[in-house]
Design a protein around this nucleic acid. Sequence first.
DNA 1: TTTGCTGT
Length: 283
Amino acid sequence: MLRHTFLRRMMRRAGVAVLFAAVGSGLWYMQEREVRDRLSWMGVPTWAEVTPLSLHRVLRNDGYLLGWSDLRVSPLWVSNVLHEVENPHAGERPGFRQDWRSLWPVTPDSYAHSGYDRGHLAPNYAIAVVHGRDAQRDTFLMSNMTPQRPDLNRRLWQRLEEVVIDRFVPRLGTLQVIAGPVFDDDFLDGMLNRVGLVEVPEAFYKILVVPGERPRALAFLMPQDVNGDEPLDRFVVSIDEIEARTGLDFFPQLSPAAAESLEAGVATEGWGLEEVARLPGRF
DNA sequence: TTTGCTGT
């Protein structure tokens, strides 16, 4: 009899524990979903085809999300939202920091004497202005860096980032931005072509979307090997082309019809791209 | 007001 009540009491406790775990993980899941929805319109990028090289873990940062590949030792995509602000102001540049969530030791020194820059994917200035100081600090995590040639990083890519926050956002309002690297198809080349442990991309993409009833998109694909003073509109591509080059599926929550109309073609009307394509660089 | 590196 005594034994019987003891068992029942234990069962009840176990039940309560399971209930707590279920509610807790349910709440965690809902909150995670809520954050992801806020930081990534129509869902975070996913892989079109499951291979070891396409796997990524979603790392949550202040102001942006990042898909981390443990095999490439590299981000595969970063996603953030930009909107207009009253008085744009960015604090002083914080220092580069190791991101312990990457597991692999990628330190601020890892790129030294490599000939490559530590190139931001989620940009310092735009994120700082829109999302504040803590978000700005998060853009300096080494997990947000990819090896970029200086002429790309400091010139062409910098001009693109400047045009996005200074021209496109005021003109079009809120923008969903996704940026990331493009890698060589060859597995062995990828294993050998590294800065420290980090795989060196052969190109970079940036996708801009104006969300809404009839969303509009503009996408760029820029190779490492540029002079830096090329007009930006030379690098415009369709989202489908970026998906083909990266193996990623962007905006997976779009219906097939909506995805087709947004991603299949190139439509530059309305962006004012001609006016900004040749603006000189800052550096 | 926006990118970085190297050498001291």
